[in-house]
């Protein structure tokens, strides 16, 4: 117990005494974590928008005019029982006509000569995973009461191609950025340890074990990493709130979800990465100087 207090005391004292290095390392962590945080928020939001776009992929099953209401009810039950289906809505012939009239209300003349309702009734089916559209759609082909199945095949496939490319690019970007952050931070820490290599040498000569020397350095790294990451978290959160408000104001048609990434999630990632890099970076940075 006394040892732990000693290690923390040593760490705090040397953070204070080497304040220039402390600040330099904190700024490095702050900048790296800030950039990482911004990119994470960006990627999360793009992902949310992509999901939203994908949700728009629906299957429409057009029914023959001859279907009876019991058949409709039976089919509805059957559809809702499919595991991939999120929701299914029946649109009657009358409903379909009403919608069309609503869409074309500037041209009432189009409907004047209409003797009977030419539109078919249909089911509009939304899916839990829109990528399953072709599989689910195929089940309706050949059913006696089904006139036609549509799910915007081409459009859907193009959307999925684009979204998967965007997702892969952002993943690569995050990994690269993480690597760069680790290098940058551990380099700064190594520099600050290099400045104190004589101290380490003396400690070894007096008979300190490697871990006895190492712990205060690790605690220092941990503290620097945490403080830098907390600052980054604050700035990222404030910054994204500000920017998101602007974007929502400017682009009404994009339904940007209110919080694609929660502050808690971001906090766990940034603080975790910051603290880990700080601690591990100084633990490893010390290694060369311990071989006395």
């Amino acid at each position: 117990m006394g040892k732990i207090r000693f290690f923390f005391g040593e760490a705090l004292r040397s953070l204070w005494r080497n304040y220039f290095m402390t600040v330099a390392a904190m700024v490095t962590v702050f900048l790296s974590m800030f950039v990482l945080g911004v990119v994470l928020v960006f990627v999360y939001n793009i992902n949310a928008v992509l999901k939203d776009v994908e949700q728009k992929v629906e299957i429409t099953v057009y029914l023959k005019d001859s279907v009876t209401s019991t058949e409709v009810e039976a089919l509805q039950k059957q559809i809702l029982a499919m595991p991939e289906v999120k929701d299914s809505q029946f649109v009657s012939k009358d409903e379909a006509l009403k919608r069309l009239k609503e869409d074309l209300k500037d041209h009432p003349e189009l409907f004047e000569g209409l003797a009977k309702n030419p539109l078919p009734a249909s089911f509009e089916i939304s899916l839990k995973d829109p990528q399953q559209a072709s599989v689910v759609a195929a089940r309706f082909n050949g059913k006696p009461m089904v006139e036609e199945v549509r799910y915007g095949k081409e459009l859907a496939e193009r959307i999925f191609r684009v979204t998967s490319v965007i997702r892969n690019i952002s993943l690569v970007f995050i990994i690269l950025l993480g690597g760069v952050s680790i290098l940058l931070i551990s380099n700064t820490i190594r520099l600050s340890i290099y400045a104190r290599r004589r101290e380490v040498e003396i400690m070894k000569l007096v008979g300190a074990t490697n871990w006895f020397i190492r712990w205060p350095f690790i605690i220092e790294g941990l503290a620097v990493g945490l403080v830098g990451a907390v600052l980054a978290l604050i700035f990222v959160t404030l910054g994204t709130n500000f920017v998101m408000d602007r974007i929502r104001g400017a682009l009404m048609f994009l339904t940007v979800p209110a919080s694609a990434v929660s502050v808690a999630q971001l906090a766990v990632i940034l603080l975790g990465v910051g603290a880990l890099i700080g601690a591990v970076g100084s633990g490893l940075g010390l290694r060369r100087f311990l071989n006395v």
Partner: peptide, 19 residues
């Protein structure tokens, strides 16, 4: 380290911890 704890060392340049 346990060996060195049994050997006191004094150097020309003192080797004191400046902090």
């Amino acid at each position: 380290p346990y060996l060195r704890r049994n050997i006191g060392c004094v150097f020309q340049d003192f080797k004191l911890l400046p902090s």
